[in-house]
């Protein structure tokens, strides 16, 4: 099975100029997305996952943000495209849906206005055709009574419906890649389940790839084929979704998985706690960025930064048969015993 890469991100770095000096919010991130695949980017707030999405779309204000590395979509480097061509690419080759459906829609225009505008920005067609296409897009995204919705304003719709409309707008240019930044975080569980089902159905019918950015490992379990875990601007682990949940390698991934109260978990056990707090981007540790919160940290961890290295089949038996490579950024991953993370709950510091 050879599936060529659709999106190849190599050593992506995104820096901001702040009043307290420059910070690198995304620091050397690599990943690839293949056709039809869903890649999850997980991490806690401030880990750089949203900035990664904005960098791929080049949505950051380039007055105080700068990129380096490359973001190749179908072999074309988006970071070196002139702005006019980038604008053409947005919406037609890659599209994005954001978390906050209320502020993503303009409150003074009707849904119809906005969907039709999204269509005509990229495709030359008459208003009549655009209207017909808009209706069919709304039908495809499961919006009931599409004709009526077209005349309504954003505030008249529920959050779930608004998110469907945003997805319809994102699909209007038939993008090959959909970037969804926390698409269901603001929604209730039942609505979240519906939206996730919708995204999956749309993907399987059109061979569209997607990058799903989320803090919710449950959403990852439901949606993703592969996952990268980010911490303080870096990728700390990359794996197939099953492998990640079965045998997380990085101590951070383990801690994260163990700190979620599971719906079928043991209620009598205290939850795992990752001690300490995420350092700010202004004082990034010299060694491993997770060292000061890690139960397994050694002097080497504190002194020098580990590379993102391949996890090879010889070293992890249980990965036999796993076709895609796994990566982990940790000096000691070979020596960390399995199944310890859940029992390392520490007192609150």
């Amino acid at each position: 099975m050879t599936n060529p890469a659709l999106l190849t991100v190599t050593d992506l770095k995104t820096s901001f100029l702040t009043e307290r000096g420059p910070v690198t919010a995304v620091d050397g991130v690599p990943f690839t997305v293949r056709r039809g695949e869903t890649l999850g980017i997980v991490g806690e707030s401030g880990c750089g996952k949203s900035v990664t999405a904005d960098s791929i779309m080049r949505l950051l204000d380039e007055k105080d943000a700068s990129y380096s590395g490359s973001v190749e979509l179908n072999g074309r480097d988006l970071l070196s495209l002139p702005e006019t061509e980038m604008r053409r690419a947005r919406g037609s080759e890659l599209a994005m849906i954001a978390q906050d459906s209320m502020s993503s829609l303009n409150p003074v225009f009707t849904i119809g206005n906005q969907v039709i505008e999204a269509i005509t920005v990229h495709q030359k067609m008459s208003q009549k055709d655009a209207y017909r296409l808009a209706i069919s897009l709304l039908e495809r995204t499961g919006v009931p009574e599409p004709e009526h919705r077209m005349t309504q304003y954003p505030h008249e719709l529920s959050g779930g419906l608004r998110q469907r409309i945003l997805i319809a707008m994102a699909l209007s240019g038939n993008p090959k890649l959909l970037i969804a930044d926390e698409p269901t975080t603001a929604l209730d569980v039942t609505t979240q389940a519906q939206i996730l089902t919708l995204i999956r159905a749309l993907q399987s019918s059109s061979d569209m790839a997607s990058v799903l950015i989320t803090h919710d490992l449950g959403v990852v379990a439901e949606m993703c084929d592969r996952v990268i875990v980010m911490y303080l601007g870096q990728v700390v682990e990359e794996a197939d979704v099953d492998a990640l949940f079965d045998s997380p390698q990085h101590p951070y991934t383990r801690g994260l998985l163990a700190s979620i109260p599971e719906i079928d978990g043991d209620r009598s056990q205290p939850l795992n706690v990752i001690a300490g707090r995420v350092p700010t981007l202004h004082d990034v540790p010299t060694g491993c960025r997770f060292a000061e919160r890690c139960d397994f940290a050694t002097d080497k961890c504190r002194d020098s930064a580990p590379p993102l290295e391949d996890v090879t089949l010889e070293t992890v038996d249980m990965l036999a048969g796993d076709a895609t490579p796994r990566k982990v950024r940790c000096w000691n991953w070979r020596h960390i015993p399995m199944n310890t993370s859940a029992t390392t709950a520490k007192a609150i510091r």
Binding site: T190, A193, L196, A221
Partner: peptide
């Protein structure tokens, strides 16, 4: 029941 069914699975295999 509807609420419980909507909770994301804790493992991709369960999903």
């Amino acid at each position: 029941r509807q609420l419980l069914d909507a909770i994301p699975a804790s493992h991709p295999r369960l999903a």
